[in-house]
Computed example of a mutant assay.
Amino acid sequence: MKRMTSLIPLAPGVWYLPGAVNSFVVAGSGQTALLIDTGLDDAHARKLLRVLEEAGLTPGGIMNTHSHADHHGGNRLILKRFPDLKVFAPPLEDAVITHPILEPLTLFGARPPRELQSKFLLAPPSPARLAPEPGLSRIGGADVELIEVAGHASLMYAVRVGEVLYAADALFGEDALNKHPLTFCADSGLQKRSAAKLARLEGVRTVLPGHGNPTSDLAGLVAANLAAYERTTAAVLRAVQAGEASIDELLARVCGALGITMTNAGAVVLNRAVVSAHLTELLEGGRLEMKVMDNKLIFSAQA
């Protein structure tokens, strides 16, 4: 008989539920717990509620570290079971969680076609409110430290509880980095600075990425992520140096260089956004030029 998944302890009163996206669970007052990131869909949320019940815990609140659908898609089912729960999220991210159409709309640049309204880009809405500002806070009865780590999303919080750090998507496990060479970001320069900031934290014994396994090697995980982000910047720069081109032409060049094959519209708009973010970083660093030519936005290497 297959063994049922259970909460995995990281420290006293701190657990996680592994999955395509990890859920971080922090003990609150009494037998309640703060749920941090609820996964992609009802299936993950159902599993999360089941393992909480097995552990004798009841949800005391929800904290979404950012507004990407795979981190808050489970909110709906949990709120059906516990309608009085409050949902917290960073600024801007709370608006997208409340109005999820903003995610595919932003990626596509207009009302998205049906192919861009899948659960991977369009989660069910849930009424999010502003989380406290970075620092020590009590949320849903649990005491946590919120750390701003924007870049992967417009704004994002990592969550620290004592010697345990949930890095959310500021850091990815090495398997995830290898599987997705174009690591998503809204601001690639800020993504790098946020990762580097986490490396300076003292007293962290366990770090859990949003995607991947926990590790005791925070410095090593940060180094792996920074190397991956820099590889993307270098790939985008080489694509432009091969000859001036539009964003879509550069996207095709970068994917070819990194061995990426895109087979659906969602992958195209996500990877296009990554290339755009690195183009902005290179423009601001004075390494590229941007112009309009033949009714297209064209990028070229700085002379």
Results as ranks from 00 to 15, higher is better:
A128I: 06
V274Y: 11
F24W: 03
L190T: 07
L34Q: 11
H44R: 12
E103L: 15
G203F: 12
I8N: 06
E289D: 14
G13S: 09
E115V: 12
A128W: 02
T280S: 10
C255V: 07
F299S: 03
A69Q: 06
N225F: 02
S126A: 14
V159N: 04
K119D: 03
V292K: 13
D42Y: 12
D84P: 00
R138Y: 00
C255H: 03
E148M: 00
L92H: 09
L7E: 07
T263P: 01
G256H: 11
A245V: 05
A224E: 08
R50C: 04
K291T: 15
D37L: 05
A158Y: 12
A142M: 03
D37E: 14
A234P: 00
T206V: 15
F299Q: 05
A131G: 08
H66C: 15
F24S: 01
T106L: 13
D248K: 15
S246T: 15
V222C: 03
L165G: 07
V204N: 11
L105I: 02
L208D: 04
A277F: 09
A11T: 01
E53C: 00
P90G: 09
L279H: 12
T106R: 15
L226S: 05
A227L: 03
G285N: 14
V292P: 00
L35A: 03
E174S: 07
